[in-house]
Amino acid sequence: MGKVHFLLGINGKVGGFVFYELNGQQMVRKIAEKKKSTKTEGQKIVLQQNTEFSKASVHEYL
Rank of each mutant, 00 (worst) to 15 (best):
F6A: 02
G12M: 00
I31F: 01
T40S: 06
Q26G: 08
H59A: 12
E60R: 12
E60P: 07
G24L: 01
G15F: 00
L7H: 03
Q26W: 12
A56N: 05
E41G: 09
E60W: 14
H59S: 10
V58D: 11
V18N: 00
L22P: 06
F17R: 03
A32V: 10
S37V: 15
M27E: 03
F6Q: 04
L7E: 00
K30N: 01
S37Q: 11
Q49E: 11
V18Q: 00
T38R: 15
F19E: 02
N11G: 00
K44V: 02
G24E: 03
L47S: 03
K13I: 15
K13T: 14
V28W: 08
Y61E: 15
Q25M: 07
Y20H: 04
K39D: 00
H5W: 07
Q25H: 11
E33P: 11
H59D: 07
K34C: 10
Y20C: 11
K13D: 10
E60S: 10
F53N: 14
Q48T: 08
E21K: 01
T51P: 09
I31V: 04
R29P: 01
K36E: 13
Y20N: 04
S37I: 12
Q49G: 13
L22Y: 14
A56D: 03
V58A: 14
R29C: 02
E41F: 15
Q49V: 10
K30L: 00
F6E: 02
I45F: 14
G12R: 01
Y61P: 11
V18G: 00
T40P: 05
G15L: 02
F19Y: 05
L62H: 07
G2H: 06
E41W: 15
Q43F: 06
V58R: 13
K44L: 04
K39C: 01
K44Q: 02
K44C: 00
K36M: 10
E52Y: 08
E52G: 13
G16Q: 11
Y61M: 14
F17G: 03
V14M: 13
F6P: 00
M27I: 05
L22K: 13
M1Y: 08
N11F: 00
S57W: 13
Q48I: 06
G12C: 01
H5T: 07
V18A: 01
N23W: 04
E60Y: 11
Q25Y: 09
N23K: 12
Q26M: 15
Q26P: 14
S57F: 14
K35R: 09
V14C: 08
K35A: 07
V58W: 13
S57A: 12
